[in-house]
Write a protein that binds this DNA or RNA. Structure first.
Lengths: 254, 254
DNA sequence: ATAATAACTTGATAAATGTCAATTTTATAA
DNA sequence: TTATAAAATTGACATTTATCAAGTTATTAT
């Protein structure tokens, strides 16, 4: 996938100003002087290696995080020792918004590959939003989007067949790669089949079978984590969700 | 249930100051002078009758809403003409937070009974939060809580048996009644079995059978919408640990 | 490079839940 | 009130997906 990227992912010390993720991130639609202020409160942490944790369940909530490069999964442990994967997080996406209410992280965030993040201390961010209405608005928008996205997933989990779930998952990933300037038809999945199954509320075996079937039907090519989408239209039909709403929610500016 | 209520639900023209829902609502932890300011931007709408709409899919987003009395359901139409119920909303709970991002309501809000709401124009609210850090913080907290709650539901839909889903649903409703000063062990459900099934990602028939089984096992008394919870502990066990407790429950009775 | 481990795939079987159909009960409207 | 429609329940059956088991392929560590 690396050779297919259209934009460069920000390396560890680039400022918001120079960051290619600006349009997907908090800085969207804030400008020069204000951007510098935001930039000043952001801490750029040293990259996480695969399987390292960004935060654990119960960790005190101090900051929200934005993925700069790489990817993470978040998951909540259940009473009976299982895990429920609640999301995958690609560059430009926020983590930790679910902890503001309680002051503690309700889930674990674990790097799926070498991953670097920006840390945004929440108190400073709140102070900053007091004098920057556009920043506040952007924060609210991003939180709202997360609520909206979660509801889409609820719909998926509640109503859809295994086939539709995997289709929707692949389309979602594809779309998000596209928004980040990568190919939407060929990419590497950083998460395991197990993670995908868990996220979609299915057994690993079911997911594996679906991958095989999609490949047999010529809809995709899947060689382990390397995915090529051959037939976007069929995939959308199978997913049975409105790609419209998804696009609008992601690209439209309020 | 009406004769069991501990607090009075606010009637249509009571101010935030006098409102019994203050501690569950946006005003939480803001005081006198500031409360008046919030109070001033809030519009108290005339009550909705059963089956009337608060907003429709695609309605422009101008305001968020707080339930004063009664209840609503929100649902999203799917591409194939189905509906997915995304939530039930009791007094003190917010609606419309999922529309901030796109500027359009992605779901329908429909009254389940005679229902009155406070309308809070979002622009005014954003302005107000600029000078009221505590109000901003409370808004962020409530949005965060919604994200958190949605993730809980995702977990339910992804991982749990029908038994666990209905248990968790009943416990959730019970808890929310309790927080509002009503009995947590005896209440009326304002939503139909169909709505519950849809919300939980189950067939109506399955929900109906579960109600019957819970009743046979003495866990609850369910006469249509009138619910009495007899055995809270078992219900919690069922909600938490699906596989194990399920077998116990089966051998216990059958 | 090789062994050990983890991830993935595939098949057979079982279990849970959905679907269809019929009936009863409750709610709504004439 | 009675007629009509809607909601809820129950049973029989079908289907999807989970589970169990085995084997294969990749990844990691020695």
């Amino acid at each position: 996938m690396r050779d297919r990227k259209v934009i460069d992912l920000p390396s560890s010390n680039v400022s918001c100003n120079e960051c290619s993720l600006q349009q997907l991130c908090l800085p969207q639609s804030i400008n020069g002087n204000e951007l510098d202020k935001l930039d000043n409160i952001i801490e750029r942490k040293k990259p996480l290696k695969r399987n390292e944790y960004l935060f654990q369940v119960g960790s005190p909530f101090d900051s929200i995080y934005v993925v700069r490069s790489g990817s993470l999964k978040t998951y909540s442990p259940t009473i009976d020792g299982q895990e429920q994967v609640t999301g995958f997080h690609l560059p430009g996406e926020l983590l930790g918004l679910d902890a503001i209410g309680s002051g503690q992280h309700p889930c674990v965030a674990k790097a799926l590959e070498t991953t670097s993040v920006c840390e945004i201390p929440f108190e400073s961010l709140e102070e900053l939003t007091q004098s920057m209405p556009t920043l506040q608005h952007q924060l609210l928008r991003l939180m709202s989007k997360e609520i909206f996205d979660d509801q889409e997933l609820m719909l998926l989990l509640g109503k859809k067949t295994a086939e539709a779930r995997l289709s929707a998952f692949l389309l979602s990933i594809s779309l998000r790669f596209k928004q980040r300037g990568f190919s939407s038809t060929e990419f590497y999945l950083s998460m395991s089949r197990n993670d995908i199954a868990n996220y979609l509320g299915l057994a690993v075996e079911t997911v594996s079978r679906m991958f095989t079937r999609f490949q047999e039907d010529g809809i995709i090519n899947a060689e382990r984590k390397h995915i090529v989408i051959n037939d976007w239209d069929t995939l959308q039909q199978l997913a049975g969700i409105s790609q419209l709403s998804e696009k609008e929610a992601c690209t439209k500016k309020a």
